[in-house]
Design a binder for these strands. Structure first.
Lengths: 203, 203
DNA sequence: TGTATTCAATACAGAACTGTATCCTACTCT
DNA sequence: AGAGTAGGATACAGTTCTGTATTGAATACA
């Protein structure tokens, strides 16, 4: 058998993964601890040996996704900043590649957001995560703009907020009506216009 | 005492109202039938005398909000279409005035959407409601554009989809960070640019 | 005025869920 | 090889929730 530490952390990881799936399927309240354990191939004994409560699991899961997000950004940023392609390709690429499974990620993300809108502590955690993500995107925008000889007429962060807002709303529509709103269609139609409107050649 | 029919429908209305509040506070799964009854000032007897189950209540509540929305739109459209103001003022005005309590409406709306993303039947109902709302907005846009001598270079419905997506994402940010993102700020900053980009004087 | 009916309250049965306490198994370390 | 330990399974207690069945009160109607 495996050494115990690796075994334990593996169990924990599988429980977190199971929680991600089950939360996406049924929501936080709708998913029972037993559902999660079953999905991960364990019983509640394993769960309470790794987490103090369901609430604690939610926090841990949030932290885990935050860490994963951070790691992915660090891995992707250098490529996107230097490699060819337009500013928007880079920004939308980062948004998409950090959410490999669009549907699951959106469900979890919406669930977290809803939770945060009701719980100030969760809101703080979520806002920190979003601020971090936004900052990465903002820097990416600034770098590419400068490299391309462009100057923005609004703060880059404001522009990024707008992109994130549109992306979130558009994803919701795409998931609800995949035929009518193909993924990314709204972004690709309108964001070039916005970028055009807020940028000019730097002197 | 009241005549029984009025009494009954009043009870039903109060239960729906209570459900709206409690759902907004705790979410669908988090709110128990008893919570809802207590909020409305009744016991579960009243509830099961008016609704067959919690699921049925959710459907009824959705239908009720849909009806309310429809009524409000009909009341507002004539004013907005004819009275002065820009196209964007009219569109954003309609979006805002149909959601008097931004926070509660967003919570309920997000909850419904999440529900619909997991339940095809709910998705169909939600899509119908959204289609109706979108159609009203689209016609409003078309009317005002024509009256103002403007021509859109993209389908009006596509433009409206984009406005709705941005509005939804922006509202989420505003509720999470009211100080950093005042309500409506993203829309008012960027939508004029988009409109400028997709419209031209009609020949 | 008396009877029937409607609506909501109360009492209750059954299910599901959380969290705890105990036990068992497999690995570690000497 | 044998003792100790950690991780996970099993069994259980207590709570909470949904939904039903019954009861009581107020109104309509004859």
């Amino acid at each position: 058998m495996e050494p115990p530490k690796r075994r334990r952390s593996n169990t924990r990881a599988r429980l977190l993964e199971g929680a991600l799936e089950v939360f996406a399927e049924r929501g936080f309240h709708g998913a029972s601890v037993e559902d999660i354990c079953e999905r991960a191939g364990f019983t509640r004994g394993a769960f309470y040996s790794n987490f103090g409560s369901k609430d604690e699991l939610v926090l841990a899961l949030f932290q885990a996704t935050t860490d994963r997000l951070l790691g992915q950004i660090e891995a992707l940023l250098p490529d996107l900043a230097n490699q060819p392609g337009t500013l928007l390709d880079a920004v939308l690429g980062l948004l998409d590649e950090t959410a490999p499974d669009q549907r699951q990620w959106h469900l979890i993300s919406a669930e977290f957001t809803l939770h945060a809108l009701r719980d100030p502590e969760a809101a703080e955690a979520l806002n920190k995560q979003r601020a971090m993500f936004r900052k990465s995107l903002t820097r990416l925008v600034e770098q590419i703009a400068e490299a391309g000889g462009l100057e923005l007429t609004v703060p880059a962060e404001q522009f990024v907020r707008m992109v994130m807002a549109l992306h979130e709303g558009a994803r919701s529509q795409s998931l609800l009506e995949p035929r009518e709103v193909p993924a990314g269609s709204l972004e690709h139609t309108f964001l070039p216009m916005v970028l055009e409107a807020v940028s000019r050649p730097s002197r």
